[in-house]
């Protein structure tokens, strides 16, 4: 892990990059990285996330600033701006059942080609997908997802980059931290090595490339 200034971290992200962004309706989203993406005006982004929060919050700020080309998410119902841009065909939105989305990301991080899930069988979600029978039950083959960068909101990071998360701010964060080429973390608090007991580390330091302290 390397400590990095916020502006320098965001400068690593090229226009057109694919980003996995942790958070659920903005809770657990690395808000300062979002603000800096908007300030630097990084365009044509592909966002993989549970949702696009709401206007003015979290990923919603990237949508407001029209920096997003494609969204892969389970829910955009609480962000009318995302829906408007989708209806006007200015962005593409792939809607994925939430349990399938997290498993596709987990597959990407865990070296799997995908997972078999019963969710979506017999619905529009199965269109274009392989259906596989196992022990008489139907499953859809849902393929792995990866991204160029994972933007992670953690609670604690020690000086090495071992991470813990807080309450419902965990959500997609620990899974996404494994599924991108580079992992950029904001931590609410940076603490000395040893402060986080080994049993409590959720994301091990070797997975973390950069940490920005929120201060």
């Amino acid at each position: 892990m390397k400590p990095i200034r916020l502006a320098d971290a965001v400068e690593l992200i090229p226009e057109g990059a694919s980003l996995m962004i942790g958070g659920f309706m903005g809770v657990g989203t690395p808000e300062r990285v979002i603000d800096e993406l908007v300030r630097q005006g990084k365009r044509e982004l592909t966002i993989i996330a549970n949702d696009t929060a709401m206007p003015g919050r979290g990923i919603g700020k990237l949508i407001d600033a029209e920096l997003v080309r494609k969204v892969v998410a389970s829910h955009i119902g609480l962000n009318p701006v995302t829906q408007k841009q989708m209806i006007e065909q200015r962005i593409t939105v792939d809607l994925v059942p939430q349990g399938t989305l997290i498993e596709r990301i987990r597959s990407g991080g865990f070296g799997l080609g995908g997972v078999l899930t019963p969710t979506g069988v017999g619905t529009v979600v199965e269109e274009g997908k392989q259906k596989i029978e196992v022990d008489g039950r139907s499953y859809l083959l849902e393929t792995a997802l990866r991204a160029d960068f994972a933007l992670i909101g953690a609670f604690l990071s020690d000086y090495l980059g071992n991470l813990t998360y807080a309450l419902t701010a965990q959500n997609f964060n620990p899974v996404m931290a494994m599924a991108a080429d580079k992992t950029i973390v904001t931590a609410e608090h940076v603490v000395p090595v040893g402060f986080i007991p080994p049993d409590h580390v959720v994301t091990p330091a070797p997975l973390v490339d950069y940490v920005i302290a929120n201060g």
């Binding site: 659920f24 709401m54 349990g99 997290i102 899930t117 609670f155 419902t168 701010a169």
Partner: peptide
């Protein structure tokens, strides 16, 4: 950092526990 599935603030009752989305949907599926 403690919210419900609509992102609204909630409380946690005694005995509550929190987990990531893979666990949450493992519980469901």
């Amino acid at each position: 950092l403690l919210s419900d599935a609509a992102g609204r603030p909630v409380t946690a009752l005694p005995g509550a526990c929190t987990f990531d989305s893979a666990m949450s949907f493992g519980l469901i599926r």
